[in-house]
């Protein structure tokens, strides 16, 4: 019988991963979506090995300049889950989470640094060959109707 993981487990299949000095770029070959994991999200994702509990990951957060706060890990896991970057795992991050503003206030983060520190994933849809083909001989493309789900920020 398959042993259920103790902690969150990062998805590995059909992903192309490029580690940058403080971020991770991930290409999801199944969904043709691209993600940029900021420093804290990248840090948390790399610790999602199925054996490390959420509490243990939280305890390591000071290594990236964040307080050892469980809600930070839960926020990151929720964002990773929405981006389909988790293979499954405990539902602890499904619990109601404080808002970003509440977290910033509670952790005493300066507004300017919060954006860089707090877990965040920026995502985009990979261009289709038709989208990528920006032909010179076409008329000006029509204005997009409304913002689509092509550019999302999970945080």
């Amino acid at each position: 019988m398959k042993k259920s993981p103790l902690g969150p487990l990062a998805r590995k299949e059909d992903l192309t991963i490029e580690d940058l000095p403080s971020e991770t770029v991930v290409y999801d070959r199944t969904r043709n979506r691209m993600h940029c994991l900021n420093r804290s999200t990248s840090f948390i994702w790399k610790r999602c090995n199925g054996d490390t509990k959420v509490e243990e990951i939280a305890a390591q957060l000071p290594e990236v300049g964040l307080p050892a706060d469980l809600d930070l890990v839960r926020r990151a896991l929720k964002a990773l889950d929405r981006a389909h970057l988790l293979a499954g795992g405990p539902a602890s991050f499904d619990a109601a989470l404080p808002s970003r503003r509440q977290l910033v206030q509670r952790l005493g983060l300066a507004a300017g640094t919060a954006a860089a520190l707090l877990p965040a994933i920026t995502s985009a849809v990979a261009p289709t060959p038709a989208m990528a083909k920006s032909k010179d001989d076409h008329d000006k493309p029509k204005k997009p109707k409304k913002a689509k789900k092509s550019d999302l920020r999970f945080d």
Binding site: V25, Y27, N32, M34, A124, P127, T128, P129, A132, K133
Partner: peptide, 8 residues
């Protein structure tokens, strides 16, 4: 990558 022709 959003402007890479052969990304897919």
């Amino acid at each position: 990558l959003s402007n890479t022709i052969a990304v897919r």
